[in-house]
Amino acid sequence: MEIKDVPQDPGILDDYGREICYAVDQNGNYNLVQSIGWYPKNIANRQAWQAIEKKINKAREDILGGKLSPIGFYMACNQMDIRLLAQYMGLYCWQVRRHLKPAVFKRIKKNVLDKYAALFNVSVDELTSLPDKLTRDCHI
C-alpha cells in the first residue's frame, strides 16, 4: 500500500482518534500513516452491530410476549450470552437461565438484583422495567 492509497473513509473511529496504517513512500520505504478508517471495515463492523441489534430486538419482543425477563434485554445490550453473564455474576449457568424466566425474575432476592444492576450499570428500577429506547448505548 502506498501512502497516497491509505484510505480515509469515516466510520467507526469518529472523533475518538486515528489508527495507524503502514504504507510505503515513493522510494518504497515504510512509514506510519494515520487513517480514519476504511470502507470494507466499516461495512463489516456495521454488520456486527446489526447482529447485536437483532438480538436486542428479539429480546425486547420476547419480554413483551412474557417469555423472557428484562435481564435478557440487558444481556443482549451488553453482548453477553448466558455463559459470560454467569461468569460475571459468579453464578452457575442454570441459575442465570432461571433468572431469565419472568416468573422466577419476580422472586429474585434484592442482593442478586443489585448485582445484576451494578454489572449492567443501571438502577434496579430500570432493571425491572423495560426501557423504551432501543439502546445500543445502554451500557455506555
Partner: peptide, 9 residues
C-alpha cells in the same frame, strides 16, 4: 475511552 463502535468483548 474506546470508541463505542469498537466496544466488543
Amino acid at each position: 475511552y474506546f470508541p463505542p463502535a469498537l466496544r466488543f468483548h
